[in-house]
């Protein structure tokens, strides 16, 4: 169902990852994502897998919950795999009719899938262990230097935080609207593609209306509490690094070293 989308969702429990400073997690996720794109070899993916599995173990988030997020991108995964398998030129593996499957194609498809899956899991691990407000605090602080170039860092962070907190709200709303239209006999599963797309109208129109209504209410609520942007705004809990965070950075540097070594040697 629509509730399976775990994008941006927070999983409340207690773990080392939950307690880390959001800046560490942001930095770690960034390094991890970059490393995924640097790896071209099998050994590289072993390193990435080991790192990811240990992070999942540390996070105390149920594995089932983490993998649920993948369902939403299943289509993209299959699509990428098919395209890569059939359209990559190279040495022939099997061939029938006009279609040739190459060794390079299979290899590329496998890597692409691993990359996408790890990318999604890696980044959802960050949002699962970090509350939206913490995440945006971290983002605002780590990107603070961009203010020099007149980038509206605070505003961007605020927008992101609002977007993140509204994802579950809107998903819930979508779920409710779908149910309400189903109660009126709406059918989203049968018929050809045109009919199915058309059947989305009764969901999308109320959803947009409700999103605009919520946005409007929120804007009024913020203004009536004198929100005027980031200047002079103080924090209830300012971010500060602790010993744990330093250790985490050390782990990250080690990971980076391994990535570089593996990249050069294998």
């Amino acid at each position: 169902m629509i509730r399976d989308i775990t994008l941006g969702q927070y999983y409340p429990t207690d773990s080392v990852l939950h307690r880390l400073d959001p800046r560490v997690k942001l930095c770690g996720t960034l390094i991890y994502v970059i490393s995924l794109f640097l790896f071209q070899t099998f050994t590289g993916y072993i390193v990435a897998t080991v790192f990811l599995v240990s992070m999942i173990a540390l996070s105390h988030v149920p594995v089932k919950f983490i993998f649920r997020g993948l369902k939403a991108i299943l289509f993209i995964l299959v699509f990428t795999a098919v395209l890569n398998t059939f359209l990559t030129p190279g040495r022939e593996l099997v061939s029938f009719w006009k279609i040739t499957i190459t060794i390079e194609g299979v290899r590329l498809a496998a890597f692409m899938i691993l990359r996408l899956v790890y990318l999604i899991i890696g980044s959802s691990l960050m949002t699962l262990t970090t509350t939206p407000s913490n995440l945006t605090d971290g983002l605002e602080k780590s990107l603070g230097w961009l203010k020099v170039f007149r980038v509206p860092v605070h505003e961007i962070a605020m927008m992101m935080s609002i977007a993140l907190t509204f994802i579950p709200v809107l998903l819930e709303e979508t779920d409710r609207i779908i149910k309400a239209q189903q109660a009126r006999g709406a059918d989203f599963e049968s018929g050809n593609i045109i009919r199915r797309v058309k059947s989305l109208v009764p969901i999308l129109v109320p959803l947009f209306i409700s999103a605009f209504r919520r946005a409007n209410d929120l804007a009024i609520a913020m203004e009536s509490r004198c929100y005027h942007g980031g200047d002079g705004r103080t924090k209830m809990r300012p971010l500060a690094y602790g010993f744990r965070d330093i250790m985490a950075y050390v782990v990250l540097v080690l990971y980076l070293a391994v990535v570089i070594v593996v990249g050069i040697m294998f």
Partner: peptide, 9 residues
């Protein structure tokens, strides 16, 4: 449903 007016389209 509760607040059924939200399903009009």
């Amino acid at each position: 449903f509760q607040y059924p007016e939200h399903q009009l389209f």
